[in-house]
Design a protein around this nucleic acid. Structure first.
Lengths: 132, 132
DNA sequence: GCTAGTGATATAGTTAACTATAACAGTATA
DNA sequence: TATACTGTTATAGTTAACTATATCACTAGC
């Protein structure tokens, strides 16, 4: 229904892939479950079905999902554990270092961000002393 | 020298913009300083100079940088404070919620993320219980 | 067999990102 | 003036992402 679904910082098909990954990790989609049909998703988010298919094919390539023509696409056995390993490694190696650097650069306190609510207002002044 | 400089998750010109922003925040580039010339950067990273220019133009549009034809591009007064405000807001509103959700989803512990190097090996078992 | 639901493939067009190459325009300095 | 730096504009081509439309292929249920 909403169309502010998409982030301009990443292609839609990858965001679709990430959305399904999140659902698997959150236990919303369990092993053996069918994932929302290509055509349904395409209609719901008003996106071309080829774009959805492309996102889903990524999951097939990652062995997370199996496609059964005429039936649908289904979560593979072991998908969640596979993800917990792979995504952790990817996150720690590729994303977190960058994010962590940004946090330090902005003078934000990691502890504040990690504990409690993410919405807490940072009342820090915007005046900081440069590094050297 | 290295050509593994670029992340496929974001266009080069935006990564170039972010790189300069980081240098300003880190105090490597101070107000009044010239930033590395379009052509130099293009040559060093083996990228088209138009791509570099596009990244730099973003900074001009953000009032962070001023262009002087024949001389170079220079960091504006107040650039750093402007950034500390704007980038904090952007980060907290757009990036952090997504990252935070990922962290929880992967069952990563704040201590793991904060201590020492981000490269520490996560020895957690890949077995977790789903949400519901 | 028919219908309605699945995924898959084919064709073609638009746009944004990036590229190569060339030329233009301003400034500093020898 | 000549040279060597700056940024800027113009032209044109490639690729990836996304789109629209249509068609094929398979499965389940009536």
């Amino acid at each position: 229904m909403m169309d502010r679904e998409w982030n301009d910082s990443q292609p839609i098909y990858r965001q679709l892939r990430d959305r399904v990954v999140a659902m698997i990790l959150d236990g919303v989609l369990k092993e053996g479950d069918p994932l929302p049909s290509v055509r349904n998703v395409a209609a719901e988010y008003r996106v071309n079905h080829l774009t959805v298919l492309k996102g889903y094919q990524q999951l097939v390539d990652e062995q997370l999902v199996e496609s059964k023509r005429g039936l649908g696409m289904f979560i593979n056995a072991g998908a969640r554990n596979l993800l917990l390993q792979g995504e952790r490694q990817k996150f720690l190696a590729e994303e977190w270092p960058r994010v962590r650097a940004t946090i330090q650069r902005l003078g934000l306190k990691p502890e504040e961000l990690l504990d409690g609510g993410a919405t807490r207002r940072s009342k820090q002044a915007a005046e900081e002393k440069p590094k050297p």
